[in-house]
Each structure stands twice: as C-alpha cells, then as structure tokens.
Computed example of a mutant assay.
Amino acid sequence: MNEFLSYEKQEGVATITKTSTEHNQGMTRGVLVGLKRALEGARDDDEVRVVVITAAGNGIHDGARVFPELRQDVSFTPMEFREILQFGHALMRQIETLEKPVIGVAKGGALGGGLEMLHACDFVITADTATFSQPEVAVGLMCGWGGTQRLPRLMGWRRAKELLLCGSEITGKEAAELGLVTRAVPLDQVDAEVATLIGRLKAASPLAQAYTKLAMNKVWETNLGAGLDYEVDAETVLAAHQEFPAFMKSLYAGEAPSFTQLKRLTGGSDWK
C-alpha cells in the first residue's frame, strides 16, 4: 500500500498491517493516508468479506504522531489543527460505516489516536497483558478523533471518565471486562482467536451483515424510534434479496448455504 502499511488479501480477508517501526506503528501521515486508501480498496473489492487492521512489531497502535511529524513544535493555527482532526474523524467514520466487518488486532495494546481507531472497529482482539489508555489530558490535549463520544458508549460513563479525565491505563483483560475490546486472550492465542472470529463471520450472509452493521450504528446516531424505523426498512430491503428463502432451500436440501456477495457498482477502475 505504501512504506508504512502492507495490504494482503487471502481467502476473502484483507489484512492491513502497520509496518513502520517508528513510534510503535503510530498514526503518522503515511499511516492515515495509507489506511484511507486501503479501506477504500477493501470496500470496492467484491472478494473481500472481512477486513483486519493490525500492527507489526510489538503490536501497539500508538497515537497521533502526525502532529510532531508535520511540525516539530506542534504549533498549528486553529484551522490547521481542525483540518487534521477532521481527516482523522473521516477515517474513523470510514471504518465505522464500511459495509463489511472490521477486526482490530492489538497484541500489545493501543493509546491515544491508535486506540480511537480501534473504537471504530467492529471487533477488537487483544492479548490479556496488553495495555490501553487515552493519555491526551496528560499532555494538554483531549481526544480529537472520536474518543470522547465512542468510549462512553462502549464501556460506560463512569469508567470512561476515569480513562479520559485521568489518562488511566488498563490491561487487555480489564478492557475486555469493560467492553472496550471484544476479547482478550493469552498473547500466543491471539492469532487463533482472530482466525476463529473470521471463520464465524465468513459463514454468515454479507448482505445481512452490512445492513445489520448500518442499523446498529443508529444506536449512536439517532433516537430509539428512528433507529427502530431504520431497522424495519433495512430488514425489508434485505428481504428483497431473497437470502432467507435461499438459506431455507439449502437447509431442506442438506446443502451448505450460498449467500450473495456484496458488489459495488461504482467500485471499478472506471469510477476512480
């Protein structure tokens, strides 16, 4: 993808790996731009069923290193600072609204902007000994890529305040107990856990997963009534694809179900 990221597609899984050894795979400009392009590629590739975002080396997703990278004294005008924040926000929304499951893998943990990236993923698998924190307040900042909004929704109000206002650090085991990550296992079992999850995801209907993910986003984006209305509309549209009748036919015939792959009309090179 670029010198900061590798992109590998195998058996319907697109794996995006932060490969730069500088700053523990931090959110540099190269990583931000590379992630954006890689996610667009996975979105438009009909063969991709699941996306995995991981980090090489010690497996830590570090924070927003883009700021000192652009200017060593990190002195920006308000509009310049806002521009970088908005780029990060757009990237997180790209993950959050991608119509395919996204798994974040954090063997060593995450902090700052790297952790905010994981907030946007559908699943996060980590080692129980990994560490996680939002240390922005300790350096005179606050979360700027969605942490103040997603973290309380993920793990609850009181503990989120402890992480956000104190910059506290927790282990992978604690993160799993609080709902910040999906599952924390011994380090040598992380890859197997990810593989098991991928297998479960690939066994389901891609169309049903896409509509379900978009409907679940409404929990955060709107009120209950509007969310329920969206669910009804999404289920109605999904039913038009005849996925369920096809599944039942396969079941009665004793055959493995065959689901419809996601296809983007504007995903081809002619639309780039």
Rank of each mutant, 00 (worst) to 15 (best):
N2W: 01
Q10A: 08
Q10P: 06
E11P: 02
G12N: 04
A14K: 01
T15C: 02
K18A: 10
S20W: 05
T21E: 12
E22V: 14
E22K: 11
H23D: 14
H23V: 13
N24Y: 06
Q25T: 09
Q25W: 01
M27C: 08
L32A: 11
V33H: 07
L35M: 13
L35N: 07
A42W: 03
A42I: 06
R43L: 13
R43D: 14
D45R: 05
D46C: 09
D46A: 14
E47N: 12
V50C: 04
V51T: 10
V52A: 00
A55E: 01
A56R: 03
A56L: 00
I60R: 02
H61Y: 00
R65F: 07
E69Q: 13
L70N: 11
T77M: 07
M79P: 08
M79E: 15
F81R: 13
R82F: 06
A90I: 07
L91W: 06
R93L: 14
I95A: 03
I95K: 03
T97P: 05
E99N: 08
I103A: 05
G104V: 00
A110V: 02
L111D: 05
G112V: 05
G112H: 03
G114R: 01
L118M: 09
H119D: 08
V124M: 00
I125C: 04
A127E: 05
D128G: 06
T129E: 10
T129A: 06
A130E: 07
S133D: 12
V139A: 10
V139S: 11
G140V: 08
G140K: 07
L141C: 09
C143F: 01
C143D: 11
G144D: 07
G146Y: 03
G147K: 04
T148I: 11
L154K: 15
G156K: 03
G156Q: 03
G167Q: 07
S168D: 15
I170L: 04
T171Y: 04
K173T: 09
E174W: 02
A176D: 12
A176F: 06
E177S: 13
L178R: 09
L178H: 12
G179K: 00
A184T: 12
V185T: 15
P186N: 05
P186Y: 02
P186W: 01
L187M: 13
V190N: 00
D191P: 09
A192F: 05
E193D: 09
E193M: 02
L197V: 07
L197P: 14
G199E: 07
R200Q: 15
L201I: 02
L201R: 01
K202I: 02
A203G: 08
A203Q: 12
A204C: 07
S205R: 06
P206K: 02
L207D: 00
Y211L: 11
K213S: 12
L214Y: 04
A215K: 10
K218I: 02
E221T: 09
N223G: 14
G225D: 15
L228I: 15
D229P: 06
Y230V: 10
Y230G: 08
Y230M: 07
T236Y: 10
E243Y: 06
E243H: 08
A246T: 15
F247N: 03
K249Y: 01
Y252W: 06
Y252A: 13
G254Y: 02
E255D: 13
T260P: 14
L265Y: 13
L265F: 12
G267H: 10
S269T: 15
D270S: 15
K272P: 08
